[in-house]
Design a protein around this nucleic acid. Structure first.
Lengths: 111, 111
DNA sequence: ACCATACTTAAGAAATGACTTGACTGTCGC
DNA sequence: GCGACAGTCAAGTCATTTCTTAAGTATGGT
């Protein structure tokens, strides 16, 4: 699933996670997003492009200011991938535990 | 949070996600994991090292075979990060919706 | 002892990622 | 019109990632 590639890749960078955490509060312009970050404006733009191309962020330009907003639908996909993985693992793990417990009982009964 | 850096970075690669999805079923040896993959064994080892160094996978060597198993605790951290982000966003979004609706009513009452 | 199995290590090629600076392009306010 | 502001484009640099091949180390079976 190449969508997950891009999403996880996007979230792997601390600057981009900071942008996302900032955007969760409210939409913001590019320079507003750049202000607290210790890097050039083009660098921030590149991060925003990554976030936008994986669908996490939408932006629109009005006059000379581009406003960015979060699009959480994609987050849900990743959240679900991890959730299914983890619950499936726990399901198998519990079953394994049950098997081990049963063997333990059986072994005791053999004496 | 550098732990999230490493975890998301690890999950951004489709080969590594495939390894994780394979390991969710049951523990496996290195060559067992490598068999279905179209790449050399050292490449698979490197992927496993990435998974191990972010805490997603544990492995132990017995005789000449190294057995790898999944460690889902770290998954939970990422799952939670995304979940909190998304629910916080939805909370703010709902509140915004309420404000807009109230303004709409107010505007209608003005007529 | 000998050979195959199961990794392990090291070194290097090719592609990608995360920045930088410098030069531009549009808007806004006066 | 003109300067400042908000953003954009284009190179170019440096580090990291992903994969390769080749050679080496244990371990297990006979």
């Amino acid at each position: 699933m190449p969508a997950l590639d891009d999403l996880f890749q996007a979230l792997a960078d601390p600057t981009r996670r900071a942008l996302v955490e900032r955007l969760v509060e409210r939409p913001a312009s590019v320079s507003e997003l750049a202000r607290p970050l210790a890097m050039s404006l083009p660098a921030v733009m590149q991060h925003l492009q990554v976030l936008e191309s994986c669908g996490l962020v939408r932006s629109a330009k009005e006059g000379r200011v581009r406003t960015c907003r979060l699009e959480p639908a994609v987050l849900r996909a990743a959240e679900q991938w991890m959730h299914e993985l983890r619950t499936e693992w726990e399901r198998r793990f519990d079953r394994l535990g049950a098997v081990l417990a049963r063997n333990e009982i059986t072994r005791q009964e053999e004496h």
